[in-house]
Structures are given as structure tokens and as C-alpha cells.
Write a protein that binds this DNA or RNA. Structure first.
Length: 511
RNA sequence: GGGCCCGUAGCGCAGUGGCAGCGCACUUGACUUUUAAUCAAUGUGUCGUAGGUUCGAAUCCUACCGGGCUCACCA
């Protein structure tokens, strides 16, 4: 079906488009030229004026952008055009330009939202705004559907009040292009997101890590507790999973002789959607030989503080009105101690699952599914009573073994492994271990997981023969780390839903 | 998956049983330094979808679709 205008505004624009074509105007010319961005043009004029030079010799510029405001007055008109750098006003006067071209503006054949190219001398209007006295005016792209109208009122002190708006979340997410086009602050979030990724990369590069890329399509998934997406390779008739983590592929590279590797990329988990979960999300994982989880904690707090400094110019982040200080050193506390503080239960007093489950039921009758493993029960206690209260950055150390199949046991402790997660603003931000490098123990763990958790449960950890083969060649002791980039972005941009830090968050099908 | 809330013009919203409304945008006219431009005039609808109740439904009821918050699940 060929698209038809769906409302009056679109009908008008459709008509204008054919009127312009009848005049010989090319609606979508293949090329544009520009000498300056809008922001550069303003800077140029400011600098020119500072040298006290005559206005009649002011520089001539060509700028390109989208029309975001139009005030057609008669024989003189004003527009603001906007490119990524900002806005500049165009001053169009019939005397200064070709009358036919001017009349297209006066007759409103040129609309808000059109992309245009304008050439002229920089000037100041009587009201004092730096503008371009347009002498050449070229349509670059006709807009056939109107963007939401937002009017900007600039106050005496320079602050901008916006009138009108584009706020419907569903429409904004489905039509992110329109959201970005009209909501400047949305663009700023994604600019910061790019800085965050860049800063993480810079930090790890400077620490001597090598950036690598590993498969997204995997014949066996692993490295985390999550259900995978499945897919299929037609020619090879091969069943494949989208990765749920990078862990096992990265650690194989330590066997290969790299001392320190990292990857930034997308993981896929076939699970619930919430304000902090999206089916595909971005992680950074790194593995460093000869480091343990204490070393990784040191790196973590330095890295996060560095990123905050690079992105916001301060290690202190504001989230939901709360000041969060990301500067080292962060609080370090064991899982056992954290749970004891918030629930007064020392779970080591209840070393079997039935005992611990009974104890949890005393706190909250409905909270627990029956028949969970001891480790899952500990995790339940933690997420129920502790997690939300960890606002300032906190390392939670020493996790139950049966929920941590890739972490090394704590010597002389058959219940715990050398694992930490770190929490900021009540959210888990990342997960790390002293990595298990004993192939015999790793195989035992795979078998233990198979015994404890049913196939198709989210804790299912398929035995990866190739991974064990790699480990048998010898894997150096190492510390590993994973962190959610989306959640870090939420924290550093004060956005409270993961959807607001994803360009295209996952949504159900339209209609 | 449960609970609560929302869906009306391009956008933002009002309307809770009796003619479908407001602001901005759009259209027409005026205006040679405006800036939320102003002034005047005229338009703009599958009231999310389907069914039901009723003389009459945007409004009440049911189901469904989409969304938000929240709980559960889940890192």
C-alpha cells in the first residue's frame, strides 16, 4: 500500500510538496553544503564582534538544519533552524534574496520541520539576537508529517521554558526519532551514554586490557543464570543460542595466553521486562590473570569513579534526589553480615535448605517458593531485605556456592565462593569472582548444577565440554567482572527506567 | 502472570448518560527586526477495538489490544 496522508496537516504538506515540484523545486536534493554548524556560526559572530569590527563586513556562512520555529511576518520573516550543535535564527527579507524564493517562505510552502540550507552574512537583529541575513535559501528535505510542536520561551536569565510537549511514553519509545527530534534532553542522555561506553573503554585500555569480540551465536550458552533465546542456522541445520553472557568465551582467551581481556557488547536474556530489565542489554566484562576478587574490587571502584568524573565532571551522582558518592573506597561487607544486619538472621545457623526456609517463613509467610536450594534461599533473603537499601556503592562479598558455578571456593569454607556483586542506588550494577580455574572442580560444579536445578529452569547451567577442555590446558588464576552499562547509564543520567537509556527499548508489537 | 491507572484532533489535555470541546500546530487574510510574535477569520475526529445495556454511550458493563506504575518472576 502506498502511503496516504492521514490527517489535515499531512494533506496540506502533501499538496505543498507537489506545488513546490511544479515550481521546479527539488524536494530531496542529493547534496548539501555547509561551512559552519549553527553553534560555530554563533561563536564566529561573537568572536568577530569582540574584535570591534564593522557589522557590514561580518562573515558569510552557510548553515544547514531543521526549521524549528517560523515567524512569517509579510515581507520579512524569521526562522530558527537547528542542527545537532544547536539553533540559529535566520532573518529572511524579500530585499535580500530572490523574490521567488522568498515567496515560497511567505506562502508557507516551506514548513516547520523541513531541512534547509541557508547562506548569508552574520548579523544581529534589533532585538539583539545573532542571526543570518539570508541571501540563498535551499530546501534540503521536505517534511511530510508534522513533529510535535514545542515552543521555547527564553527567559531573561537565559533559562528556557518549553511550552507544549511530546510526553506519551509509548509514542516516544515507538517513534524514538520523533522523540529525539523534539526533546533535547533525550538526546543529552544518549550523548552521555556514548561517553560512558567510551570512558569504560579508555579506562580498561589504559589498564592494559585487550578488547576482543566473541560469538553472540553460541552452540552452548553459559556464564550466567538466565533463560536464553534460541535460533537456528539454516544451512548447517544448527540450533544456536544468543549469548546470555561473554564469560566462558573470554576466559578461554586467558588459556590462550592473554593476560587481560574485555568485551563490551550485547547480551540477550529471555526473561521478564521491568524498569531495570530489557531482553537485550549491554554489558562490559573483563578477566584479568593473577588478580583475585579483592583486586577486582579495587579496579571496579576506580573505574566507576573515573567514568562518573569523565561524564559528569564529578564522582558524586544525583539519583532520585539522592547524592551518591562513587569515589573510592566503597563499603565492603559479606553477604552473611549484610543479611544479619538487616534481618538479624545469621543464615549459618541454618545450614540446610529446610532449616533456612522455615526461618524465612517466620519473617514473611508468603515470600518463599518451597523446595529451593540453600543458596537460592540466601539470595532470596538478600534481595528481599537488603538490596533496595544499598543506596551508596557497596560490595557484597562471598556468595553461596550453589548459585555461583564459575567462582572459586573460599578455602576451608564449603558453603561460600569468592564472589562479589556491587550495588548502587538499590540496583545490582555488576558481578565478579575470583574465577574458578580448576577443571576438576568446574566439572563437579556442572554436575552439581545439573543435579540441583531442573532442565529449563533459569538456573540451568549446561555442561560445556569445550570449556572444560580449554581449562585442562591450564588457566591462570584470574579475577573476572561484569557490569550492566544500561544501569550505569541510568545512575549517571538520573533516568529511572532502563527504557529511557535505550534508543529502542523492547516493546510489544503494535496493534 | 496479579493489582491499580491510562488510551478523545498532528501534539498536550478537558469532557462521567443528551449537538465532540480547549490550547498549540494547520488553513485564509494583514504585517519589512520577530522570538511562546501579534491581530482577524475558517476548518480539523474510526472518542483504542469488538460486543452489550439504554429512547440515547466518549461516558455504564464485558472481552480484547496497547501503554504506565507496582508486586511477582528475573540479575
Amino acid at each position: 500500500m502506498v502511503w496516504q496522508p492521514t490527517n489535515v496537516v499531512e494533506q496540506d504538506r502533501w499538496q505543498k510538496a507537489s506545488d513546490l515540484e511544479a515550481q521546479g523545486v527539488i524536494l530531496y536534493p542529493p547534496r548539501a553544503t555547509r561551512t559552519n554548524t549553527c553553534a560555530q556560526a554563533i561563536t564566529l559572530m561573537t568572536a568577530y564582534e569582540e574584535h570591534g569590527q564593522a557589522p557590514e563586513n561580518a562573515p558569510v556562512v552557510t548553515v544547514c538544519g531543521r526549521i524549528r520555529r517560523a515567524n512569517i511576518k509579510g515581507k520579512v520573516s524569521f526562522m530558527h533552524i537547528e542542527d545537532e550543535s544547536g539553533r540559529i535564527q535566520l532573518f529572511l527579507r524579500v530585499n535580500d534574496m530572490d523574490e521567488t524564493v522568498y515567496n515560497r517562505v511567505k506562502d508557507k510552502l516551506i514548513d516547520m520541520d523541513d531541512f534547509v540550507q541557508a547562506t548569508g552574512q552574520l548579523m544581529r537583529t534589533q532585538a539583539g539576537e545573532i542571526s543570518i541575513r539570508v541571501r540563498e535559501f535551499v530546501l534540503l528535505a521536505k517534511s511530510l508529517s508534522p513533529l510535535p510542536v514545542i515552543k521555547q520561551e527564553v527567559q531573561e536569565d537565559g533559562t528556557v521554558i518549553e511550552h507544549g510537549g511530546f510526553t506519551d511514553k509509548e509514542t516516544r519509545y515507538r517513534q524514538r526519532y520523533a522523540d529525539l527530534a523534539v526533546n533535547r534532553d533525550v538526546r543529552d542522555v544518549f550523548i552521555k551514554r556514548a561517553k560512558i561506553v567510551k570512558s569504560v573503554r579508555n579506562f580498561l585500555d589504559d589498564e592494559g586490557f585487550l578488547e576482543v569480540e566473541t560469538p553472540i551465536l553460541q552452540p552452548i550458552y553459559g556464564g550466567a543464570a538466565a533463560r536464553p533465546f534460541t535460533t537456528h542456522h539454516n544451512q548447517l541445520d544448527q540450533m544456536l543460542y544468543l549469548r546470555i553472557s561473554f564469560e566462558l568465551y573470554l576466559k578461554r582467551l586467558l588459556v590462550g595466553g592473554f593476560d587481560a581481556v574485555y568485551e563490551i557488547g550485547r547480551d540477550f536474556r529471555n526473561e521478564g521486562v521491568s524498569f531495570k530489565h530489557n531482553p537485550e542489554f549491554t554489558q562490559v566484562e573483563f578477566y584479568k590473570a593473577y588478580a583475585d576478587y579483592h583486586d577486582v574490587m579495587d579496579i571496579t571502584e576506580r573505574m566507576v569513579a573515573y567514568v562518573a568524573e569523565q561524564v559528569n565532571g564529578s564522582p558524586v551522582a544525583t539519583f532520585k534526589g539522592e547524592q551518591i558518592n562513587l569515589a573510592p573506597a566503597w563499603k565492603r561487607i559479606t553477604m552473611r553480615e549484610a543479611i544479619r544486619q538487616f534481618t538479624e538472621i545469621d543464615y549459618m545457623d541454618y545450614p540446610t535448605a529446610p532449616e533456612l526456609e522455615a526461618q524465612i517463613r517466620k519473617l514473611d509467610e508468603k515470600g518463599v517458593k518451597p523446595g529451593q536450594t540453600w543458596g537460592k534461599l540466601v539470595e532470596h533473603l538478600f534481595s528481599e531485605y537488603v538490596e533496595k537499601r544499598l543506596i551508596q556503592p557497596t560490595f557484597i562479598m562471598d556468595y553461596p556456592r550453589d548459585i555461583s558455578p564459575f567462582a572459586k571456593r573460599i578455602e576451608g569454607d564449603d558453603k561460600h565462593v569468592e564472589r562479589f556483586e556491587f550495588y548502587i542506588a538499590g540496583m545490582e550494577m555488576g558481578n565478579a569472582f575470583t574465577e574458578l580455574n580448576d577443571p576438576r572442580d568446574q566439572e563437579a560444579r556442572f554436575l552439581e548444577m545439573a543435579e540441583l536445578y531442573a532442565k529449563d529452569s533459569d538456573e540451568e547451567t549446561p555442561l560445556d565440554e569445550d570449556y572444560l577442555r580449554a581449562m585442562r590446558f591450564g588457566m591462570p588464576p584470574n579475577g573476572g567482572f561484569g557490569m550492566g552499562i544500561d544501569r550505569l547509564t541510568m545512575l549517571l543520567t538520573d533516568q529511572h527506567s532502563i527504557r529511557d537509556v535505550l534508543m529502542y527499548p523492547h516493546l510489544k508489537d503494535e496493534k
